[in-house]
Design a protein around this nucleic acid. Structure first.
Lengths: 115, 115
DNA sequence: ATAACATATGAATACTTGTTCATATGTATG
DNA sequence: CATACATATGAACAAGTATTCATATGTTAT
C-alpha cells in the first residue's frame, strides 16, 4: 500500500512532491520552532505555557505556531481564553521520535575519511 | 533499546539534542538540496550526473553536497575523476521514504476548522 | 460596558542563506 | 609537462526569515 507510481528516474521526481516536503523540513529546521513542536507532541499545550516553559515571548511562540498550523504540523483547539496546540497527526510524532533517536545515536558505525 | 533518559518535562529538553536535529531538518528544507539528497538515495551518483539530471550547475550541486556531507547526510566516494555521493545511512533513506509517503497522502482525515 | 487576561497580527530590523561567477584543486591522458 | 575534464572553493549579491515591539482581536469576569 505504500506504492503509487515511483518516478522512472531521479530526474523525473515532480516538483509538486518536493516542495511540500521541503516546506515541512524547513519549518522543523529552526531550533526555536522545533522546540515548540516537540512541546506539543506528547501533550497539548497552551501558547502561554509553551512560552513560559521555553523562555520565549508569547508573541514569538504565536508567530511560529501560525506557520506550523498553516503547514498542518500542529492543530489548534480553543478552550476559553486559551488556545491549545498539539501535533497534528501520528506521522509527525512518529517521525520526530525516530529522528530524536537518530541524532541521539553515537556518531560511529562508519567514520573513515571524515576530513 | 530506544530509550535513554527522556526529559522530565518538555522544558528540559537539552539544546544539544535540539540543535543537531534542527540542523538536519534545515538542510533538508531547501528544495534544491532535497532533490540532490533524493537523487542519492537509491543509487550513488556523480556530481556531474546529478547536476545534469536536475538541471543545475555543478558548482551549485557541489556547494550543497558539501553541506550535506558535513552533516553526514551523504557520503562521498572518489573514483577516478568523479566523486560519487550516496545517502549516508538507512535512517535517512527510511525517513525520507516515509516522509514522501506522508506528503503524498490526501489532505484529509480531519479538516474541521481549517481557517 | 469596562477591565483584565490570552493570543494574534503587522511592520521593521538584523541576520541567515541560496545562488552565481570566477578561480582553484585534483585526476587522468596525450 | 601540458591539456582536458570533474569537482571544489571563495567572494559577492539577492532573497528569505527569525525576532522584537507595538497594537489588535477575542474571551471571561465584574
Amino acid at each position: 500500500m505504500a506504492s503509487a507510481i515511483s518516478p522512472v528516474s531521479f530526474e523525473d521526481r515532480p516538483v509538486e512532491t518536493i516542495v511540500p516536503l521541503a516546506d515541512l523540513f524547513r519549518l522543523l529546521g529552526d531550533p526555536t520552532r522545533l522546540r515548540i513542536v516537540l512541546a506539543c507532541v506528547d501533550e497539548r499545550r497552551a501558547v502561554g505555557a509553551i512560552a513560559q516553559g521555553l523562555g520565549l515571548s508569547p508573541s514569538l511562540v504565536s508567530h511560529h505556531l501560525r506557520l506550523l498550523r498553516a503547514a498542518r504540523i500542529v492543530r489548534a483547539e480553543r478552550q476559553g481564553k486559551q488556545v491549545f496546540y498539539l501535533a497534528a497527526d501520528r506521522h509527525i510524532s512518529a517521525m520526530l521520535a525516530g529522528m530524536l533517536e537518530h541524532v541521539a545515536e553515537p556518531v560511529g558505525e562508519f567514520s573513515l575519511d571524515a576530513s
